[in-house]
Structures are given as structure tokens and as C-alpha cells.
């Protein structure tokens, strides 16, 4: 039932993009998102398209894999596109009975759709080429300065990686408890909203109990392995910038400057 859901998927491959430091990829993704939301004109569109597909090519992740991620948001894209298309006021282009499609509408709708698609594809390049653990390590180290103002950066990163480890376990557990209650005649499908919510009690109570039991066990197991928090810990995989990271930073910054230049020239 629920086992078909895949979360935090990673596509293993041996590529330059995979080998980059997660911090480099976080920075690159951030600049890419900014560029996607600030580009203008066909030339700008050409630049970001070239850049994105270039990166996808380098990552050795098949394009079909990327497109799969888009399927989930098709409906959202259609709604957002339609709203922009029909509701933007401006110079009428086509008038069909009461529906008016304006020139601005077409422009906004296509811009919007392109931005959403590129946003999803751009970020999935990062998630597909970086393991969840590298990602949390990258976030932890990038946000390290915040711990000076008492933000528990290490603890947050630790929580994230533990959550990632336990999501599949809890999904499986949900599946099991659901089946067990269905075997006792529980009904999770029929009835109105309130009845449905009430019917969830036999699922949610055992699930919470189990989650707390697991949390308790895990805390004990971590303590038994001498865990005391971030201080005094060493890293098995410390993040160190390599030459290729310097190169990647340069490429990303040059790319960003070009997008800005193209925008200001037009």
C-alpha cells in the first residue's frame, strides 16, 4: 500500500556533480533559483535553459528520472497556468464569449510555468545527486555561524538525519497497523470528514505509541555509544573543498553575472 512512496530519493552515479561538496551544490542551487525568478526575455531563457540542461547532462541522471518528479505537480502547474492565462488584465488577444485571453496573460502563464518547472528540476538535480546525509552535513556546516547566536545547528542537523532514517520505518509501521485494524473490521475509507477523522484514532494512537517507544530506544542507544551532542565530536566525512568546488563556484558565479547582464541589457 504505502510502500510505493519513495522519499528523499538519491540517484547513485559517478559524476562530477555527485562529487561536489554539498555546500557548493546548496550555493549553486540558491543562485540558480534566484536566476530563474529574475530572468527576462528569450535570451535570458536561453541562458538558463542551456545552463540547466548542461548540469543535468554532467550529473549523468537520466532526463526521464527528472521528468518523473514533475508528474506530481502537473495539476498544480495547470491550475496556476490557467489562472494566469485567463485572469491577467491587459491587451485582449483572443475573445471567446466571456473568456478573454490577453497578451500579458499568455506571457505570465508561460513565464510562470517555465519558472515552476525549472525550479523543480533545478532543485531535484541537487537532491538526486546528494545523499540526505551529505545534505544535512552541508546545511550544518553552512549554517555553523548561526550557532554563535545560540541556534542549535548541530542538533537540528542530527534531528533531520534521524528523521530521514526513520521515515521509511514509520511508513512501513503505518501500513502494518492499518492492516491489523482493518482485519478487526476498521474502516478507513467510507464516511464523511468527521467520521473519517474519528476512524483514524485506531491508527494514530498505536503509531504515536510506537514512535515514542522508538525514540526512547534510540536515545538510549545513542547514549550507550557515548553521544553527548556536537562538542568534541570528530567527523567521519569532514567537508573539505576540493579544486573542482572552486571551479564550480566560478562557473555558477559567471552564469549568474551573465543572467543579470542579459536582464539589464534588455
Amino acid at each position: 500500500m504505502l510502500r510505493d512512496i519513495t522519499l528523499g530519493q538519491y540517484y547513485p552515479a559517478d559524476s562530477v556533480i555527485h562529487k561536489l561538496d554539498p555546500r557548493t551544490k546548496l550555493f549553486g542551487t540558491l543562485l540558480f533559483i534566484i536566476s530563474v525568478f529574475s530572468f527576462d526575455g528569450l535570451l535570458g531563457f536561453g541562458v538558463i535553459t542551456l545552463f540547466m540542461f548542461g548540469i543535468i547532462y554532467l550529473s549523468k541522471v537520466p532526463l526521464s528520472f527528472m521528468v518523473r518528479g514533475l508528474r506530481a505537480i502537473v495539476i498544480l502547474l495547470l491550475i496556476a497556468g490557467a489562472l494566469n492565462l485567463f485572469l491577467t488584465p491587459g491587451q485582449p488577444l483572443i475573445t471567446l464569449w466571456k473568456i478573454v485571453i490577453t497578451k500579458e496573460g499568455v506571457r505570465n502563464a508561460s513565464l510562470m510555468t517555465v519558472r515552476m518547472i525549472y525550479l523543480i528540476m533545478g532543485t531535484s538535480v541537487m537532491t538526486l545527486t546528494t545523499t540526505p546525509n551529505q545534505l544535512t552535513d552541508g546545511l550544518e556546516k553552512s549554517l555553523r555561524p548561526l550557532s554563535k547566536i545560540h541556534v542549535p545547528v548541530h542538533e537540528i542537523a542530527m534531528m533531520m538525519s534521524i528523521a530521514l532514517r526513520f521515515i521509511p520505518i514509520l511508513i512501513e509501521e503505518t501500513d502494518k497497523i492499518m492492516k491489523a485494524q482493518m482485519a478487526r473490521g476498521a474502516d478507513f475509507e467510507s464516511g464523511g470528514l468527521i467520521k473519517k477523522a474519528k476512524n483514524m484514532v485506531p491508527l494514530l494512537v498505536p503509531l504515536f505509541v510506537s514512535a515514542f517507544r522508538r525514540a526512547n530506544d534510540l536515545a538510549l542507544a545513542m547514549e550507550a555509544r557515548c553521544y553527548v551532542g556536537g562538542d568534541g565530536r570528530t567527523k567521519m566525512k569532514p567537508l573539505v573543498y576540493e579544486k573542482r568546488d572552486v571551479g564550480a563556484y566560478a562557473v555558477v558565479i559567471v552564469y549568474f553575472v551573465i543572467v543579470v547582464l542579459v536582464k539589464s541589457l534588455l
Binding site: P132, N133, S161, L164, R165, R214, A221, R233, T234, M236
Partner: peptide
Amino acid sequence: DNQIIASVVQEDVGFGPENLGV
């Protein structure tokens, strides 16, 4: 299940030594 902390086998084995500051 409740005593493995990391999502990759070798990283989990490294958890103890990391805590000890090795």
C-alpha cells in the same frame, strides 16, 4: 531498527568513534 542512527551502514558504524573524538 531502533539502534541504527545513520542511513548508510558505514556512517552508522562511525557514529561511536565520532562521539569519542577519534
